[in-house]
Structures are given as structure tokens and as C-alpha cells.
Simulated assay, not measured.
Amino acid sequence: MLDVERYYRALDLEPNASPEEVHQGYLDMTWVWHPDRFVGHPRLQQKAQYKLQELNEAHECLRSQSAANGRKMGRKPKYSASPPPPRRSPSPGLSKSPTQRKPQNNDPRTVNTSRPSICFKTNPIDDWLD
């Protein structure tokens, strides 16, 4: 139990921190102690590498511990191994599938003056960017 307390102290957290707080504490401390921040200072860069190893160990231990506690408590894991739900097609008319295109004339004497079809694809990330 002494190691667990040391891990919480390394991440600058209270011992009753939630898994989300553990992860956020890890992100915060890795930002502070990342060795690339100390370029030109060899002693500090070496210390930062040591601290980063310690942070990685603490994060790995506390996450595996919280996952084991979740299984004991009968909680469902946050991420499951099931396949993702089927993607919805974008609004009709925004994209043209290859089956909807008109057949092209393959006669080499004719000049193709048609423009390529424009295809708008929606991405779930686009929703929160607006």
C-alpha cells in the first residue's frame, strides 16, 4: 500500500482520486516534466527523464488498479471490444456514390468536358468544431 501512496504523490493527487483524475494528473505532470522542455540543460533533462519514468510507472499501476477494482465491483469497462456501431450515411444529395454516376463515353475522339463530381463527406469531428 505504501507504493500506491507514492504513486498518488508522484501524480500530485489525493489517494481517493477517480480514474479520470488520475489520467488528468498524469497528463499535467508529463507536460511539466517532459525532457524536451529542458533542451540545453543536461542535468535538468536527465532529472526530467527520471521523473517521466516515475510518472509512467505510477500511471500504469494506478490505471491497472482502478481497472481491477472496477471488475471486482461489477462495473462495465469504459471501452468494450465490441465493434463500433454502423455509420450513418450523410444527408442524401451531399455525396454521389460511384453507382449513381452517368456512364462515360469511352470514345477517344470525344473530349470530356464534364467536371468531376463534388463529394462532401461528413465527419463526427466536424460537429464539435463549429
Rank of each mutant, 00 (worst) to 15 (best):
H34P: 01
D36S: 14
L52P: 01
W128N: 02
W128I: 04
N112C: 03
R109T: 02
T122C: 02
G40R: 13
H34M: 04
D126S: 08
A68Y: 12
P103A: 14
N69D: 15
M29T: 01
Y26M: 02
R63H: 13
V4H: 09
N106M: 08
S97V: 06
N123Q: 04
D127H: 04
R9D: 07
D12Q: 08
I125T: 01
N69V: 05
D12M: 01
Y79P: 00
P84C: 10
Y7I: 00
I125C: 02
D36H: 10
K78N: 07
A81T: 11
S117P: 02
T99G: 05
Y79D: 10
W31Y: 04
R75E: 15
P84L: 11
S114A: 04
G74E: 12
R115D: 05
E54H: 12
L94S: 07
Q53I: 10
H59P: 00
A48H: 13
V4D: 11
E20W: 00
L62M: 09
N112A: 06
R115P: 00
K102N: 08
P116S: 03
Q24V: 02
M73P: 00
Q53W: 05
N16D: 08
P90L: 11
M29D: 00
D3L: 03
K121D: 10
L62W: 03
N16M: 05
L27G: 03
E60R: 15
R9I: 01
T30I: 15
S91N: 06
A81Q: 13
L55V: 03
H34I: 07
V111N: 07
T113K: 05
N106R: 10
N123I: 00
K121N: 09
V111I: 05
E60K: 15
F120R: 08
S117L: 10
S82F: 07
R9Y: 05
S117A: 08
K121Q: 06
A17F: 01
V32D: 06
S95C: 12
P98F: 10
W33A: 08
Q100V: 07
K51G: 04
W31E: 11
W128H: 02
M73H: 13
A81P: 03
T30K: 11
N56L: 15
S91F: 14
G25E: 01
I125R: 01
L13P: 00
P77A: 15
A17S: 13
V22K: 00
Q100M: 12
V39W: 12
H23Y: 09
F38H: 11
Q53N: 13
Q46S: 15
Y50T: 12
C61L: 10
T99Y: 04
D107W: 06
